[in-house]
Structures are given as structure tokens and as C-alpha cells.
Design a protein around this nucleic acid. Structure first.
Length: 534
RNA sequence: GCCCCGUUAGUCUAGCGGUCAGGACACGGCCCUCUCAAGGCUGGGACAGGAGUUCAAUUCUCCUACGGGGCACCA
């Protein structure tokens, strides 16, 4: 199957939703979009899918721009730079969606639905108990005009649903998979307009892609199953649909869809621990894709321009690639070693200088630095990714501050609960300030038997890797949410391991034994040759 | 439960009917070496299983198994 590229200019887009830390998956899809656009001399558009009012934040939006710029992706149109098809923020396009919904209502390809959430839950539960596909039962599909008017007059809140065909098949032409066939009876009458008047992804996505002239939809495989709905939307509007290219999903080591629980997924995390943007992009370009030179030999190190120059999306392999930190680090090292010493020094310095936390961190560390040489020692927890936790750190993590008589042992289970609680709170925080963080930490500790001191120490060690650090809340702010959460999750994973302490104790014991053996050997008289050779 | 997608070593991948199944990360060994890296050489390790199609299947078809995704007034 060949990916059709018509005479029209290629236009592709990424459409992240600003609901959290900027995700490696966004950069992954963005990379292939941008490279595809470049390959065919088209445009690459950034659009914000912020129709979920509850979860979208400005904080996240800005972080997306920053991180995407950091990896080196450049968009031709977007909310921050404008363009001919704006606005590029879906929350600013509400009237467009509503107007289009009216169109669908008028031509009977959509209908108003007054069902309550409770009824829908009940319907779904019944269907599942009968082992059927859970889908809307069409209760409001055939309401009479009078019934609808009556409900509307009552001011009854309602949504607008797409009227899907009840029989036949829908064939999704996927550029990488060929024709994927769906039984229409499996497909829901999707909600297009929520009762708050905002569109769902499905509506907004189709309307925007059409209005913005998107020719190729390159998106993650998780969207494949909703493509039939999109196809019917295009048809209902009388529009031609774009070419669909569903990329494989990035995976955790256990092959599940990549998640922050099991992997650092935030681009900010990688930026702050010193992964080079070109290395990150290169690594992502290796996920599901490969390049070779004229001789047919595999090429693993390549720039964005090189990748774009001969990009062939049909070479994408569909098995979900595991996002392997080990290999990322290797590639990063490859780039680092390829620099001249001057370049390396330069990059290291600018990495530090361009970090907007430099002054903040300097302020935190200042009092603790008698000589400049101590600076990096104290600052290093702010610039690293994951941390190592030695024996002493592990003792402190479980709240065993041995020197204090009042110390409370939380134990592995207790501190696990503490950290999980803290993670939840920090995730939900929409203001990243020391006082907000302080409140979270205090609350989390308050639910445990530990005193503030022991609890704070446990948190400090988890976040900084050591018992001595600048003021905790300011440190947490400066380290950054993404990295703090990665560390806390790492600690949770450690605590959940029953060998959490015994492994560390055994390792320390081995070291001691080795040292003692070496000492004894040095003091013992030399072994006589005769004893070993009778 | 239902639907869809996928399946070459622990991991990323090459392969598009006939290959000694190639490369990379990781791992082991050796070399280099004041240490650690890096580098060089080298070793072990893969076509999920079963039916077909074919002179010939890793490659095509079907079934099974396993993995993943989807089934929201989230994207």
C-alpha cells in the first residue's frame, strides 16, 4: 500500500491536550509529522485540544511549547504563532463546532440526547452483564420533534450524538495496515457536543482537520478504533477524509502503553537531566522505524534533516516499541562523545545557563557553598534524573532516624503509603509553589504515625537522595514536578520490593567483607609455595 | 465480555518465497589501560505454535496462543 500524496500541499498536525507534563509520545508523533511535512515540502501544525475544561491548564500549555521547541520541533502554525487557519486552540473555536453541529442536526446525521449519566451507566452495565459491546442504546435517537421541543423548553441539559448506521461495515483505510473492517453494530452513537456546549475530541478533531486542510492524519494507534466514527463524520459533512496513518504506541518495559507510572514520560525530565534534544529526537526516530545507508547497512545515528530527507512511513514497523532508557542513554553518549572538547564544554555550559532555574538553584545552594568547588555537589540533585539510594538513604526513607529517640519507624508499607499519597497530591496540584507543596507534604505526613521531622526526612531523601539539602519545599519546586514525581515513583517501586532493605544490607555487607579480607591478606605472612604445590 | 491491531534474541530493528536470518543496545570473555569510561576483537542468544499454498516458507492464507489498544458528556 502506498501512502498517497496528492498534488495538494501536505499538511499534518499534532494535537496534544494541555493536561499534564509534556509527553514523549507527543514528541514521537510530532517528529514523524514534522519529518513527513518536511519530506514533502508541506506544513506542520500545532493545535491544542483543550476541550476538556476540567483538566486543561495554562501551565501545561506553556510547558508543551517549551518542550517541543526544546527537542527542536518547529511548527508553521500554532496557538503561539498564529496562522491562516486559526484559532489553533480548540477552546476558542466553540462557535465553529456548534455551527457544524447544527448542520448535522439539520441533515439528520446527528440528534439530541437527553439521557442522564445514571441511565447511561445502567445501560452499559446491563450490556456488559449480557456480554455485549457497551454502547449507547439509541434511546433518544427517534424522539419526535415535539418530544425534543418539550425537553428543550424545560431547559433540559442534553448532548448531541452522531447517528451511526445500524448495519453494514465501515472500512478504515489505514496507510500502514490496509483496510480495517468494522461492523457498524459495534460502533457507538458518539457524543459530539457535550452538555457544556463544548465538542468532544471526535467532533473537534474532524472539523478542525478539515477546516485546517489537514491531508494526512498521523496519530497514535489508540485512535484506530474511533476512526470509523470520524469517517462517518466526514461523510455526514460531505467532506473528503484525509489519509490515516496510525503509529504504533510507545511501550513500557512490560509492553503496556507507555505511562508515567512505569517510565519517565515527561520531556522536561529528560531536558533537565541532560539528554540532548538531538539525541532524544534521534532515539524517537528509532522507535518503530529504521534507516539504512546506500550500502544497505543500518544507520542508527541521524539528524532530523537526514531522517526527513528520505522518510518513508511505510517502513514503520507496527509492533509497539519499548521505550528503552538504556539505549537512549547510549545514543546520548554517542552525541556527547562526537563533540570536540570545546563543543562539549560549550554545550554543558549552555545547558546549565539556559536552564531557567539556574538563579533559583544558586540561591538555594549559596549558603552551603564555602568554595565554588562545592557548588556542583550541592546542586547536583537539581540536575539529575533518577537517583541512587544507598543503605543509609533507605533507612531514612522508612523513617528510622536512628539518632532520635522519638523516631517513628514507618516501615516500608507506611512510607509507601506516605509517598503514594504525596504523589497523588502533587499530581493534582495546579499551582506549583513552595506553599502549595508544603501543604501537600504536611497533609501526607499527617495521615501517618510519623512526626513532621521524620516524615520530612523521608520525603527529603526520596526527592534529593540525601539527608542534607536546601529547604525541602523550595527544592521540590526547583527540581520540578516531572522529576520529583519520577523519583517518588521510583522510591515507591523500591519500597514495594520485599528485598528493599535486605538487598542493600547484603551489598554493604559484601563490601565490608571484601575490605576486611583485603586488609587481612595484606597483614598475613606470604603463603609459602610448598603449601599449595605438594 | 465484545471489537480492532500486533508477534524476528531481554530490548530496538533488517528481512518484503530460496539469507550461514544481518546490525545495534544490554550481557559474558579477551585486548588496550594507573582507575573508570570509551574503543577494538569475540561469545551466547530470535523467526510464538499448528495447519495449509508452494519445488521452496521468517516472508503468503487460516486457526490457536500470547501481547497491546479501544469500548466516556477524556483526549
Amino acid at each position: 500500500m502506498t501512502i498517497a500524496v496528492s498534488q495538494h500541499p501536505v499538511r499534518v498536525r499534532i494535537a496534544p491536550s494541555p493536561t499534564g507534563d509534556p509527553h514523549v509520545g507527543t514528541a514521537y508523533i510530532g517528529l514523524f509529522c514534522a519529518a513527513f511535512a518536511q519530506r514533502y515540502g508541506g506544513q506542520f501544525i500545532l493545535r491544542l485540544e483543550d476541550t476538556d475544561q476540567k483538566r486543561s491548564t495554562r501551565l501545561s500549555e506553556d510547558a508543551i511549547y517549551r518542550s517541543l521547541r526544546w527537542v527542536g520541533l518547529q511548527w508553521h502554525e500554532g496557538p503561539d504563532i498564529g496562522g491562516p487557519c486559526g484559532p489553533y486552540r480548540q477552546s476558542e473555536r466553540s462557535t465553529i463546532y456548534r455551527q457544524h453541529c447544527e448542520l448535522l442536526l439539520a441533515n439528520h446525521s446527528a440528534y439530541r440526547c437527553f439521557c442522564s449519566a445514571e441511565r447511561l451507566d445502567q445501560v452499559r452495565a446491563d450490556q456488559r452483564s449480557r456480554k455485549e459491546t457497551a454502547r449507547y442504546d439509541g434511546f433518544c435517537r427517534n424522539l419526535s420533534a415535539e418530544q425534543i421541543q418539550q425537553q428543550c423548553d424545560l431547559g433540559q441539559a442534553h448532548v448531541i450524538r452522531l447517528k451511526m448506521p445500524t448495519e453494514g461495515d465501515t472500512v478504515v483505510p489505514d496507510a500502514l495496515r490496509g483496510a480495517v473492517v468494522y461492523d457498524n453494530r459495534q460502533i457507538d452513537d458518539q457524543v459530539l457536543l457535550k452538555s457544556d456546549g463544548l465538542p468532544t475530541y471526535h467532533l473537534a478533531n474532524v472539523v478542525d482537520d478539515h477546516l485546517m486542510g489537514i491531508t494526512h492524519v498521523i496519530r497514535a494507534e489508540e485512535w484506530l478504533n474511533s476512526t470509523p466514527k470520524h469517517l462517518h463524520l466526514y461523510a455526514a459533512f460531505g467532506w473528503q477524509h484525509p489519509v490515516f496513518i496510525h503509529m504504533p504506541l510507545l511501550r513500557n518495559a512490560d509492553k503496556s502503553k507507555i505511562s508515567k507510572r512505569k517510565n519517565p514520560t515527561s520531556l522536561e525530565f529528560y531536558q533537565r537531566c541532560g539528554i540532548l534534544p538531538e539525541a532524544m529526537l534521534n532515539f524517537l526516530g528509532l522507535m518503530g522505524y529504521s534507516r539504512k545507508d546506500e550500502t544497505g547497512a543500518d544507520v542508527e545515528k541521524f539528524t532530523f534533516a537526514e531522517m526527513a530527507a528520505d522518510l518513508d512511513l511505510e517502513r514503520i514497523s507496527l509492533g509497539g516499541p519499548v521505550f528503552d532508557l538504556e539505549k537512549l542513554r547510549w545514543i546520548n553518549g554517542l552525541y556527547l562523545r562526537a563533540f570536540s572538547p570545546e563543543q562539549l564544554a560549550d554545550r554543558a555550559l549552555s545547558w546549565y545557563r539556559e536552564d531557567d532555574r539556574a538563579a533559583t538553584i544558586a540561591a538555594l545552594v549559596q549558603e552551603r557553598v564555602p568554595e565554588l568547588g562545592d557548588f556542583m555537589h550541592h546542586a547536583s540533585p537539581f540536575y539529575r534524573g533518577t537517583l541512587d539510594y544507598g543503605l543509609n538513604a533507605r533507612f531514612l526513607l522508612v523513617g528510622a532516624a536512628a539518632k532520635k529517640k522519638t523516631a517513628v519507624r514507618l516501615g516500608a508499607a507506611g512510607s509507601l503509603a506516605l509517598f503514594e499519597d504525596l504523589i497523588r497530591q502533587l499530581e493534582g496540584l495546579n499551582a506549583w509553589t513552595p506553599s502549595h507543596v508544603e501543604e501537600c507534604v504536611r497533609q501526607a505526613i499527617a495521615t501517618t504515625p510519623a512526626g513532621l521531622g521524620d516524615g520530612m526526612m523521608a520525603v527529603r531523601v526520596a526527592v534529593c537522595g540525601r539527608p542534607a539539602s536546601p529547604p525541602l519545599f523550595e527544592s521540590i519546586i526547583a527540581i520540578g514536578r516531572a522529576t520529583v514525581l519520577v523519583r517518588l515513583r521510583q522510591v515507591c517501586a523500591m519500597l514495594a520490593d520485599s528485598n528493599f532493605m535486605t538487598d542493600a544490607i547484603a551489598a554493604t555487607q559484601r563490601e565490608l567483607d571484601a575490605s576486611r579480607a583485603a586488609l587481612l591478606a595484606a597483614e598475613a605472612p606470604p603463603v609459602t609455595p610448598s603449601s599449595s604445590a605438594p
